[in-house]
Amino acid sequence: MGNVSVSELRYIVGPSSYDSVGSKAMKVKKFLQDYFPSQDYLRRLGVCVFEAEANLAIHTTSGGDLLIVIYNNRVKVVAQDTGPGIPDIDKALTPGFTTAPEMARQLGFGGGVGLNNIKRFADSFWLESLKRGTTLVFEVWNDDSTQFDY
């Protein structure tokens, strides 16, 4: 796998769009199969995008944008919304803590491990949250030196 030029994918995730959670992540994973042959890498990246997509669908007032940037052996993901923001980021990063509505939980989401899961698999993780919106930026690298340690 040599260097590849920069490519971008953009998706809009609607608020309370529980029925379609994971559909964007599947599209991203399928698209990236042409770029990255490693199933392990695609799985890690796919899980991270799935979690970011689920957060936008479950926890936002007006939905949000999911931007995927592919450059060299890395993928950068930016998930951005317009509120209501995460009141306590430390709590949100505590496994099992969830503010997901009952409807989301009935569909199998809102287990309170999403952000942790991204943090676990991503090579870089940045999160800023204000009442007017949350921005999550993470990268998953396919570099040999940063393979996930099982």
Binding site: E51, A54, R105, L107, G108, F109, G112, V113, G114, N116
Partner: peptide, 8 residues
């Protein structure tokens, strides 16, 4: 029954 946990 939690897909969130399955993703973990």
């Amino acid at each position: 029954d939690l897909m969130s946990d399955t993703l973990f």
